[in-house]
Design a protein around this nucleic acid. Sequence first.
DNA 1: CTGAAAGCGCTTACAG
DNA 2: CTGAAAGCGCTTACAG
Lengths: 339, 339
Amino acid sequence: MRKITIDDVAALAEVSIKTVSRVINREPNVRKTTRQKVLEAARQLDYWPNVAARGLAGKNSYLIGLVYDNPSPSYLANLQTGVLETCRESGYGMVLYSLDSQKSNLIAQTDELIIQSRVSGLILTPPLSDNMELVQHLVAQNFAHALVSPPAFGETKFDGPVIMLDDRLAVFEMTNYLIKAGHRRIGFIKGHPQHSAGLRRFIGYCDALNAAGLAVDDQIIAQGYYSFDSGLSATQKILSANPRPTALFSTNDDMAAAAMHTALDMGLKVPDDLSVVGFDDTPLSRYIWPPMTTVRQPIRDMGHKAAEKLITYIHEPKKGQQIVMPFELKIRSSSAPLI
Amino acid sequence: MRKITIDDVAALAEVSIKTVSRVINREPNVRKTTRQKVLEAARQLDYWPNVAARGLAGKNSYLIGLVYDNPSPSYLANLQTGVLETCRESGYGMVLYSLDSQKSNLIAQTDELIIQSRVSGLILTPPLSDNMELVQHLVAQNFAHALVSPPAFGETKFDGPVIMLDDRLAVFEMTNYLIKAGHRRIGFIKGHPQHSAGLRRFIGYCDALNAAGLAVDDQIIAQGYYSFDSGLSATQKILSANPRPTALFSTNDDMAAAAMHTALDMGLKVPDDLSVVGFDDTPLSRYIWPPMTTVRQPIRDMGHKAAEKLITYIHEPKKGQQIVMPFELKIRSSSAPLI
DNA sequence: CTGAAAGCGCTTACAG
DNA sequence: CTGAAAGCGCTTACAG
């Protein structure tokens, strides 16, 4: 199984390798019949360009990096599946990197990653996409990047494409659902302070309460950090308030699971004594008992979009692309009307 | 920020690029003082070899592939984290591929993947590592591969390293724990028929029952496919048996969660009416309520080992390496002594 | 123990 | 619209 090279294709199509290169790279200025001949030869020989040679000769490595900092496994799995699928269709490779957004050498680490891996672009996920210092560094270096769920637009300026959800609206609507179900006292577990999406979710909650003429009560609001364990202590605080809330909104599913956990440990029934609502629609939300009401985020599709837009951007950088993805309320059994 | 090349290092160290190459690749036959000079120059310039150039010139792409077929998100996340960490230390890149082990073109897909991605080796996870046709194909092509949890040794012959758990023993011990807790009637949800590890787990269950003089009863054994939904129907079958079992062993955590779900839906209490035990120790097992008793598999470390051994194998292929990883019984609240 | 030359398979200017 | 030449940054034989 000898490797097929550009020379083989050129020979069969009776053109120069430069013409083959043009066709492969979809460059203009190739006569239609010539293009056909080359494509046919490539197909016939089952030719695939050598990525290493492309990377060495050109400036595009045909490699993009997905960087993350301690996400939930299913968030990462879904997102990377989406990115991977789009990469494969486009002839790109994907590499993964875990970065620590708390470390002071984050920028240096990122530079090292870019140099060592030779990626042509980066997809940043929260909380990395929230890190303005990092994003501005990429912008300043003119390095292609796509941002997943970064801070709200207008607050700062990005160059690359942005993939986001209307987090505020999603939580606004879900909170309204609880209010319409008769709940007047609704607790809230905040997201990690450095995740802007978490902040937007909190705003949606406050907006819904205000619109309904309900007060925002600090006693039943607690800081969470997206981890199950942080959800445990946050819930303990909230459920010790007097009067106790009848519903609890958590900024993500893991903490909502912790809320259900804590409630059950205290002898409360879900949803009879406490309605619990999460965010993300991870598999977990369906696996626990009772099945959890939550906001569905189309994470895999967000991966598709992020990769697609980043690859387009690498080929021709058009600034300011913004994609807002749809959400969906998944009403399941962990929430119920107040009797 | 001009890129540092091998020429820069050679110039600073006052040697030829070939000598730099030797040092970088840890080849023998370099005088110690020369080696020092080169290393110092590389350090001083912060030199990193260009992977694309290496891949083009040599036969090693410094890239390994992790291939999977529909694993649970947390299994994949943990394994890939381990692989990634080891890759980074060794200067390798990791690429991910999802393959469908049911499709008839699996072999062709794998070949295409190898050619396109130019990986120098592959790590196969179940059920791909169970696919003898695929493994034999790699062996025949002399292509480096590491196998995670493949069929028991002796059944066939691999060339590459093998990373496994003593699944039989793990389930044997966990079943013994249930027996010692007084359970006489213990149900079992089998794993996917094509996962040999699942088969070994079933054997461990049978062995423990036999050793205790208990009968293996088909009425309380059901086929599962590792998915939550398959666990739902398996549990329904098992819990409709008469007399009903007092304990239930599931081949993985997702199905064990489904078992708890079904039991709770039927109004049974866990663990009072039914002890439930899983396998894997995914985060899920800790997040549901009550927290689940399960067998801990050191998945991340298995990733480390798989990558480490594969990379060693790429550099010098020594056949028949086998690593058995330790397991651990995690006794939590979903199981209790029979009163 | 060390080095000079050739070549891996592409793309980048440049020419026509 | 098409092509010949140079070069990307390494490793592979080969020589000494």
